[in-house]
């Protein structure tokens, strides 16, 4: 079997953080792959929730959108979108919110709105969707994205979803009692929020990744945990389950209107 690609390693490292007892609000894209890999390997009991209202879903293929039919067919129940955001998210029943980001700063603040000025954007991005309230109402936030100097920046152009603001006790000062972002999983490393400064510190580098590589692909000055380990390599089981899942999903997405 070929070794894990950086992208596969990102999904696998992210999946390992999830537990069977978690109730996870899943963002589309990389978070969805990680959450379903966890469900298909070590966390079969995990409750996956998508903002389309599907609670406890167990899709055989990764959805292309957050409202694919597969999510509804395999869910414990499907509720309306207002109920999803009011009772289940705002009501405090989500243990993990799993988000992606177009731009991220070292304090876990996320931009998915625009590059450049809001009124005259250089690039208009899709916007916040569910993330502004997921980031404050879920008990804890995981973020996953590929490292790049354009994506991981010292200051983001727009705070779509609040992480730790300028750090320290910024969340508490806003009256937020949830933990906010605690972990960032990239294609090169696992990062954890420092308990005092609330900045991401690189905690472990994926196999074969050097500090130089991690720093070259990050737009902020990389800080490291006291001990920086190596992320345990992908196992044969993790890789084979992930590759099967991705292959099934790509085939399904290429198919058009199947009856």
């Amino acid at each position: 079997m070929l070794p894990a690609t950086p992208s596969e390693m990102m999904t696998i490292a992210a999946a390992r953080l999830l537990k069977s007892e978690d109730v996870c609000f899943v963002g589309i894209g990389p978070p969805s792959a990680a959450c379903n890999l966890a469900r298909l390997t070590h966390a079969p009991g995990i409750t996956l929730i998508y903002e389309s209202g599907t609670i406890g879903t167990a899709p055989a293929v990764l959805p292309l959108s957050i409202g694919d039919g597969e999510l509804c067919r395999t869910a414990v129940t499907t509720v309306s979108v207002p109920e999803m955001f009011r009772y289940w998210l705002q009501g405090g029943r989500i243990s993990i919110g799993f988000l992606g980001a177009a731009q991220l700063d070292p304090f876990g603040n996320i931009n998915t709105t625009c590059i450049g000025d809001y009124a005259r954007p250089k690039t208009r991005l899709p916007g916040g969707g569910g993330a502004p309230e997921i980031s404050t109402s879920a008990a804890e936030i995981f973020i996953t994205m590929q490292q790049s100097r354009r994506g991981m920046v010292k200051a983001i152009d727009f705070i779509t979803s609040f992480g730790h603001g300028e750090g320290g006790d910024a969340r508490a000062r806003l009256g937020l009692h949830s933990k906010g972002p605690t972990t960032l999983i990239t294609d090169l490393a696992v990062w954890k929020i420092d308990p005092e400064t609330k900045e991401f510190h690189a905690h472990s580098l994926h196999p074969g990744v050097t500090k130089t590589k991690a720093e070259e692909t990050c737009g902020w000055d990389v800080k490291y945990a006291a001990f920086v380990g190596e992320t345990p390599p992908a196992t044969v089981l993790e890789l084979s389950v992930l590759r099967d899942l991705v292959q099934r999903s790509q085939a399904a997405h290429r198919r058009s209107a199947a009856a």
Partner: peptide, 23 residues
């Protein structure tokens, strides 16, 4: 979602816990 629900409920506005720290 809250704003649509308020519209259906005949209310002038929706209230919810949101936008904390959001630009």
């Amino acid at each position: 979602a809250n704003a649509y629900e308020a519209g259906a409920a005949g209310l002038p506005f929706a209230v919810f816990r949101g936008y904390r720290g959001a630009e």
